[in-house]
Design a protein around this nucleic acid. Sequence first.
DNA 1: TTTAAAAATTGTAATGATTACAATTTATTA
DNA 2: TAATAAATTGTAATCATTACAATTTTTAAA
Lengths: 143, 143
Amino acid sequence: MKQKYNLIANELRRQNIRLSHLRKKVLEYLCQNPNHPTVDEIYVKIHKEVPNLSRTTIYNTLHILIKAGLLRLINIEDNETRYDIATQNHGHFKCEECGAIFDFNIDIDSFPIKELTGFKITDKNVYFKGVCPGCLLNIKNDN
Amino acid sequence: MKQKYNLIANELRRQNIRLSHLRKKVLEYLCQNPNHPTVDEIYVKIHKEVPNLSRTTIYNTLHILIKAGLLRLINIEDNETRYDIATQNHGHFKCEECGAIFDFNIDIDSFPIKELTGFKITDKNVYFKGVCPGCLLNIKNDN
DNA sequence: TTTAAAAATTGTAATGATTACAATTTATTA
DNA sequence: TAATAAATTGTAATCATTACAATTTTTAAA
Ligand SMILES: [Mn+2]
Ligand SMILES: [Mn+2]
Ligand SMILES: [Zn+2]
Ligand SMILES: [Zn+2]
């Protein structure tokens, strides 16, 4: 999505964070693949065009984007960190059959929680797990 | 909490899962420390009483309890897995200053999500991050 | 343009939590 | 008691992430 890319590029400029060639590649990938990729998925793809790419550069870029508030780190499975260029408030559903992660809208702010009065909340996360409709259908047909 | 322990012990018996000496220790620890401990915190404590304890045993026991549906794995930070003996639906708040994890009540089921119609949902998680009141006070006083 | 300083990138090694697995010990059953 | 099954140990392997020094590239100054 070119629009998203431009918005983020502007914000980086505003924050005096340089958008180098490689960082552009990473940002382009993230905007074009909002399906919550892993570091390795990003690396493997960009590595095809830039053979002497280092994984460290991917990590660096992702950390920079996160620090700038332009990327969200998603922690559903304990062994695979994923990244989400969509920073607006939304929830995630992970299918435990096919591994896909689906976005869904949830207005978590509409649930004021009494117990957290006096807490400073900076980040809200919601994620569900289960089986997606496609996989449910496959499972049924396999019987 | 002795009551919780007994409930879980009964359920394990019902599922034909043996409650060995070491598993008892782990379960006792979890019931007495519902503050979402890490594997290492559990290991270090029990190791004092059982010097030739193996970390593998802790991992085994935790995996067994999770599989039996009696323990929840909590994934807030990507480098520290935590465990929660409270399996009823509730949310977590992690203070990024002191690291403490607070429970809070949230009836996530009262938010039907249209986009997930046709999905089989087996697990719902909510966690927030920020700063707890105690740490907010300390920060203010440090100025 | 030339030069010096700063920033970005690379590549290798270290870290650390989790898992794999064979050997050993302990508990259960016949 | 002996045979079998289950639990536990301890070491090695795995694998994602981080640390960090060396190198390359970019930027800014002279
Ligand atoms: Mn998302
Ligand atoms: Mn909890
Ligand atoms: Zn699926
Ligand atoms: Zn705190």
